[in-house]
Design a protein around this nucleic acid. Structure first.
Lengths: 131, 131
DNA sequence: CTAATAATGATAACCATTACTAATTATAAT
DNA sequence: ATTATAATTAGTAATGGTTATCATTATTAG
């Protein structure tokens, strides 16, 4: 079997994700990590993001369109996406597990989780459109 | 401005989506339509799927990973994704608009909709794993 | 310290999707 | 009906995000 070996680049990628809360894309992580490791490869970033996600240490976000995003916060929580500026923000709202039970009643199989993205216009874009 | 002109290919694409309920990818639609129009172009399928989606006559589905899927049923409804076989099924469950209100309380901006995908194991895959 | 092997950087390949273009088709005007 | 106009198409090239390959480098076990 395959044992994990330590890597400075992976550390930096993990640190980057813990530090920022804007749910960056792989490319955004790449640019961040590049400041510390000027010749890190984009492939390395992708490889480690996938590894960390598979290990459950980070989360993948597919917020509709555009490239995949990543979240260093693995606690179950919802996300809000502004359809004006595209920002992805955390919602400090408990995940409603009763949704799963409600859906279970309409499903022949077994439901164990759900992913929800809320859409709308963020505070800043609201303010901007009121000018 | 740009007036819509009739097209047999677009009709066939629309008919395909109304007929099947497996939420096909663009490529799957392409294969279907190809039976009637042997030299339809994949680009035509993409162009029309996007047009129809923008007109609100069909829906785009981004179920996590893999290519985009399309749904001829525009009524608000939830989807279930089997993590074993990957099938995407409709759930005959009312959309909970109170979710939006609940989330609204945790958001500085305005929330007007949400998208939810339920995950689990479908009936068939459950049965298969019990062998 | 050395051997074994995981991880890297660089680059090519891949796949889904979009853009381009000349030829075709549908509609409107004559 | 004929023609003019503009949308649509098929075919193909290009794009963008992501993954695969591979020789080299870094990390760990013995």
């Amino acid at each position: 079997m395959k044992t994990l070996k330590h890597s400075r680049q992976r550390d930096a990628i993990m640190r980057c994700l813990m530090a920022r809360h804007d749910h960056p894309t792989a490319d955004a992580v790449y640019l961040s990590v590049k400041e510390e490791f000027p010749n890190v490869s984009l492939g390395t970033v992708y490889r480690n993001l996938n590894l960390l996600a598979d290990l459950g240490e980070i989360r993948r976000l597919n917020c509709g369109s555009g490239p995949e995003r990543f979240d260093g916060d693995t606690h179950p929580h919802y996300h809000f996406i502004c359809r004006e500026c595209g920002q992805v923000a955390d919602l400090s709202m408990d995940v409603l597990s009763q949704m799963d039970e409600a859906a279970q009643a309409h499903c022949g199989g077994r439901i164990d989780s759900h992913i929800t993205y809320f859409y709308g216009v963020c505070r800043d874009c609201l303010a901007a459109s009121n000018n």
